[in-house]
Design a protein around this nucleic acid. Sequence first.
DNA 1: CGTTTCGTTGACTAACTTCAATCGTAGTGG
DNA 2: CCACTACGATTGAAGTTAGTCAACGAAACG
Lengths: 248, 248
Amino acid sequence: MLKQPILTAPHNCAECPIRHQAVCARCEPDELDALEEIKYYRSFEAGQTVVWSGDQMDFVGSVVSGIASLTQTMEDGRTQMVGLLLPSDFVGRPGRNGAAYDVVATTNLVMCCFRKKPFEQIMLETPHIAQRLLEMTLDELDAAREWMLVLGRKTAREKIASLLSIIARRDATLKPNDNPGTTVFDLPLTREAMADYLGLTLETVSRQMSALKRDGVIQLEGKRHVTVPDLIRLLEEAGDDTDGGVMA
Amino acid sequence: MLKQPILTAPHNCAECPIRHQAVCARCEPDELDALEEIKYYRSFEAGQTVVWSGDQMDFVGSVVSGIASLTQTMEDGRTQMVGLLLPSDFVGRPGRNGAAYDVVATTNLVMCCFRKKPFEQIMLETPHIAQRLLEMTLDELDAAREWMLVLGRKTAREKIASLLSIIARRDATLKPNDNPGTTVFDLPLTREAMADYLGLTLETVSRQMSALKRDGVIQLEGKRHVTVPDLIRLLEEAGDDTDGGVMA
DNA sequence: CGTTTCGTTGACTAACTTCAATCGTAGTGG
DNA sequence: CCACTACGATTGAAGTTAGTCAACGAAACG
């Protein structure tokens, strides 16, 4: 595994990078104080498992930095990634004890955790938190459903293009546009993780990556560094509606 | 299309069949009164579209009786069902104007609708509603993620068995167990709808239904009436974890 | 410099789709 | 009442896509 720097946790909410996106986004100062009381940071190295499916889970929390994945595994070993957790995403389910999925750190990861019982209590008293959590959950549901279309109906090539689009779009909103139309990013996933996300084998992922490269849809430097010369072209390859409209 | 009786709407919340499962489940009498003010019933015939993806949606609501489906369609016509809405399920998203999916009545359908703006207002003032909606949304998210495993990793035969399991399990909880181990139900979906749900072609659905019948996993009378002599066997065919444990 | 991990590529196979013919039942109109 | 049609469903044969098995390549680590 490539050595990555271990990121350090912020010292308090004021300097927290996800302060205005996470479950605490709408909290007033006094509400934040209540959360500070029950919060602690945890760091994980790439590859570490944060929670095992079925295990007792005594905390909930937010991804502060790094990427984690939610995966389900069948008895015979087939696995499907069912969620990709980016900074500000929420982990855990208030009102339930056992974890439903494995949570694995895909990169080095810092999480802001809240002890579950007190968090549930605070949530009852703090509509701002419950409202924000509802909003985030609805967004996740939309993302999951969009992914169902990818898994159920798209070809291998379209699946790869869809995944790259998502990552490219996210990076495009994060970074200011240096070159208009051109997008550059590093894949945060191994070929195997991509395969688990897309319901493919890693060989098929590799082949389709090579095909997209051969056809000029993407450029690759090393295994992970991707350049997208024409984002519209990539979206067309993904089979998404591109004709000017806002994405669904 | 087979003629079905048009179901009539309940007259008030007290006699509503979904009173204790829907978004209003935890409401106090005075909270129900507020909802009664802004509610109205709508009926749809099997096959009718309730909402078109992208359209303005000026209401939210609950399925009272019947079944509806959420579907996404690509430009070239490929469609994927992304949700199956059963009685008590919630339709629409507070805080968003456009519908993200097509909502189609699969059977005759009665919905309890709330005008959207006032509903959003009531939700802000009524934690019982927001809490229940959060809980329901988390459940739907779990269902969507379970479905991602089905779509991404299961074989055609396992997919069919998974769908039958879900319907069988639902009917088993609804009806008291007449014959222990034996489950009987009517499929609420055409072969094409099953295919759209499972990310298959209708031919493959038909072939695998025949195969499951040939192998004695299910019995068929007509196209729709299904008998499952051994539910455990069906669950094994679905590839689900059956060894005594609680389902994930 | 060997070892490990991740990725690529090739040959072959299996699973599912596509195209097409046929069946059965329910509703329709002569 | 009975053909006629429409629709859903089934089945077969051929075609395509992605999976499987296997060898090899490249970079990083100790």
